[in-house]
Design a protein around this nucleic acid. Structure first.
Length: 713
DNA sequence: TATTCCCGCCAAATG
DNA sequence: CATTTGGCGGGAATA
């Protein structure tokens, strides 16, 4: 097993363990009992059918789809457990449960046997690890799967079956006859199954969708006719029950009474039996109908297929929202696919493009790494440094040797065009620029398609926007760049991630935090304040700096001074907030107040790394600047300044946080240690404003880029 | 109609 | 080999 995979697996396990709690356990036990009852029923049926454990093939749907289905219902389990299990609402069954539970050894026996009876059960006996709800869902899924694959092999018409045989010994029944059976099954069931399998894979997802839709439509019709006459249980339960493989009578009719007929079990069985996903969707839909009429309308709107909803832009936004706040972490494709409930192929599209921005790196099969959002600034700077055409080809050639990832390369090329060629591009123009001159029309067309994909992801990041070229003429895309990134970052910051995701290296993180705390103790608050004041004074000389920028003949000097400025900025500004962080930790310990813990998280995550990155990119820029042309230098500078502003904004945010903390302290009657900082907020505000001015002037410069670029030498 | 771009087949890569 | 990854173009949704 791949080590990374193992890691993620472990993390996953941890997550699961943590999420279990006592009241979940109650629900868990409840479900467990029901499952056991179901299993008992199934067991009986299977005994009757004389199913041979080895001949029974497991379900043949596409594996990744199936996997994702397995986890989908984690959220809904408590609401839908009844319907997923196809249990009637009256729980007379619980009596049986209790009797089963009172005899554990017998239970185990039954479980084992049951698992060995059906291929899909064999894969992983879920009862092995009773951890939490999630496991239950897997079990129920598998029960449902079995319902789907109730494709039990056909009975051999040549043979007389003893329906009253002792079920526990049925597999030892009669060796010769068993062999006959197996041959029969092999020829009439397994081989045809294989043929069907391929096509079945293809159609499975589609069928699942159709099922879900038709089910919902059915509900809708019913609703229209009968207007609130029914309650949730009737809808949810009756419909499913009619399809249920657990309906003992129907099974007996099908498989036992008609046993002499030559039964054909084909792939269309999939259509008859509802997939678990369809069940759940149907159920939730039914529930919403019952709740209110307003919801009904909303649901109808939702049901209308909308291309927008599924667009790459939306998807990419969702994807990014999950990871935006995180520092480095592992991404498991399976998980993310399931979380976003989307086809795998689409995730690849997004990941490939994000890879070109170096936000994501491939670590191995099924395993990617998120590099942190700040990484994108480095990337943009990096590519704005490279000159236009030759290097595009060079990079393309380099990467061609390793792998052909056209989407990634194309994305890089697109990015470079924006950075080095034009701020506004039509896709066709871009496509032609990015292909060899002897361009066939068909190739260009394809390239444009891909550029649309890329543009969508860029759009979701706020890097570009769509504009009309030359007044209602051809559409085109305009570069927004880091400003857009900021907006995107700020707007989706509030949304938080869609949910927890497996974290990378928790232990390392906390160690780092401890080190930082030690460092903090060396700095005193007053020192920091003094430095902050100094910093403010320095910024009064900003006009000078600006003159420097415009008149500067020696670009190296300029970068050097900028870097120095930023170094001091980092040293002086970060200290007070680190101080603040310690306090926040204390509060979190003592009060366990939500805002306090939030701020704690905030500080530990983004602040330090943000500054680290500013530094890093600064030094990079300085190193590279010997080789770059004046035009690029300007862009670098612009990026640099904007980058700083981005960090400044983050600082302002943290100041707001500190204000909140202050209020908290006052409420609790604690001494307010960093009152001074808050009072001095105007210092930082000034700082912010001046930098903003700088930015404004800077962007004016860049608009007139060409004129200025001549004066650089 | 033109633009946009989702969908998913299937081949190549990977382990 | 099974699975994962990614190229690619048809043709449907949208403006």
């Amino acid at each position: 097993m791949d080590s990374a995979e193992q890691l993620s697996q472990e993390a996953n396990d941890n997550e699961n363990c943590q999420s279990s709690s006592s009241n979940l356990n109650a629900a868990h036990n409840d479900i467990l009992g029901k499952i056991k009852t179901k299993k008992k029923q199934i067991f009986k049926l299977m005994k009757r059918q004389n199913t041979n454990k080895k001949k029974c093939s497991s379900y043949s749907g596409p594996t990744h789809n199936r996997k994702s289905q397995n986890d989908i219902h984690q959220i809904d389990i408590r609401q839908h457990s009844n319907s997923i299990l196809n249990l009637p609402p009256n729980l007379s069954l619980e009596q049986k449960d209790s009797s089963i539970n009172n005899n554990p050894s017998q239970n185990n026996l039954e479980d084992d046997e049951l698992f060995s009876l059906n291929g899909s059960f064999c894969q992983s006996p879920p009862f092995q690890h009773i951890k939490d709800i999630a496991d239950n869902i897997q079990i129920t899924e598998k029960l449902s799967d079995m319902k789907i694959s109730s494709h039990t092999p056909p009975l051999n018409p040549q043979r007389q079956y003893n329906l009253n045989m002792n079920p526990l010994n049925f597999h030892e029944d009669d060796d010769q006859k068993s062999n006959e059976d197996s041959k029969y099954i092999e020829e009439n069931y397994i081989l045809p199954q294989k043929k069907i399998k391929t096509q079945n894979n293809r159609n499975y997802e589609q069928k699942r969708q159709t099922q879900a839709n038709s089910l919902r439509n059915a509900y809708k019709l019913k609703q229209n006719e009968e207007e609130n006459q029914e309650d949730l249980h009737n809808i949810g339960f009756d419909n499913e029950f009619s399809h249920s493989a657990f309906d003992t009578e129907s099974i007996q009719n099908n498989n036992i009474d008609n046993q002499t007929q030559n039964q054909e079990i084909d792939a269309d069985d999939h259509e008859i039996h509802l997939s678990p996903a369809a069940n759940a969707e149907g159920c939730s839909y039914a529930q919403s109908i019952m709740n209110s009429h307003e919801k009904k309308q909303m649901q109808q709107q939702q049901q209308q297929y909308s291309r927008r909803e599924k667009s790459l832009e939306e998807l990419s936004k969702k994807f990014l929202t999950i990871f935006l706040q995180k520092e480095q972490m592992l991404i498991s494709l399976d998980k993310i696919t399931q979380q976003l409930d989307v086809e795998r192929r689409r995730i690849y599209d997004i990941i490939n493009i994000l890879e070109s921005l170096k936000l994501v790196t491939r670590r191995g099969k099924n395993n990617y790494k998120w590099n942190g959002f700040e990484q994108i600034f480095d990337t943009i700077q990096f590519f704005s440094t490279q000159s236009e055409k030759q290097e595009v080809n060079l990079v393309a050639a380099e990467q061609n040797e390793k792998k052909e990832k056209s989407l990634e390369i194309l994305s890089i090329g697109f990015l470079k065009l924006f950075l080095n060629y034009k701020q506004t591009l039509s896709l066709e123009e871009a496509a032609r620029k990015l292909s060899p001159n002897n361009s066939e029309n068909q190739k260009i067309k394809t390239k444009i398609r891909r550029l649309y994909d890329i543009a969508n992801v860029f759009k979701s990041l706020g890097l570009i926007k769509k504009v009309q070229l030359n007044e209602t003429k051809k559409p085109a895309f305009q570069w927004i760049g880091i400003t857009g990134l900021q907006d995107f970052y700020n707007s989706s910051k509030d949304k938080e991630g869609l949910g927890s995701y497996l974290e990378l290296d928790e232990t390392n993180k906390s160690q780092k935090i401890n080190k930082k705390e030690q460092q903090i103790q060396q700095r005193t608050l007053s020192n920091s304040l003094v430095n902050l004041q100094n910093q403010n004074d320095q910024n009064n000389t900003q006009d000078n700096t600006e003159r420097e920028i415009i008149n500067c003949k020696n670009i190296n000097q300029l970068f050097q001074s900028l870097e120095n400025k930023n170094n001091t900025l980092q040293q002086n500004l970060i200290a007070p907030f680190q101080q603040e962080k310690v306090i926040a930790t204390e509060v979190a310990d003592k009060e366990a107040d939500s805002s306090a813990s939030k701020s704690n998280c905030f500080f530990s995550n983004s602040k330090n790394s943000a500054f680290k990155r500013v530094r890093k990119s600064l030094s990079q820029t300085t190193q590279q600047n010997a080789q770059i042309n004046p035009n690029s230098r300007l862009i670098c500078l612009e990026n640099l300044v904007r980058n700083s502003i981005f960090q400044c904004n983050q600082l302002t945010n943290s100041l707001n946080m500190s204000q909140k903390l202050t209020q908290l302290f006052e409420q609790k009657g604690r001494p307010n240690i960093f009152q001074n900082i808050v009072n001095d907020q105007n210092i930082v505000n000034n700082l912010n404003n001046t930098t903003e001015n700088q930015q404004r002037k800077q962007s004016i410069q860049s608009e007139n880029k060409k004129e200025y670029s001549y004066s650089w030498y």
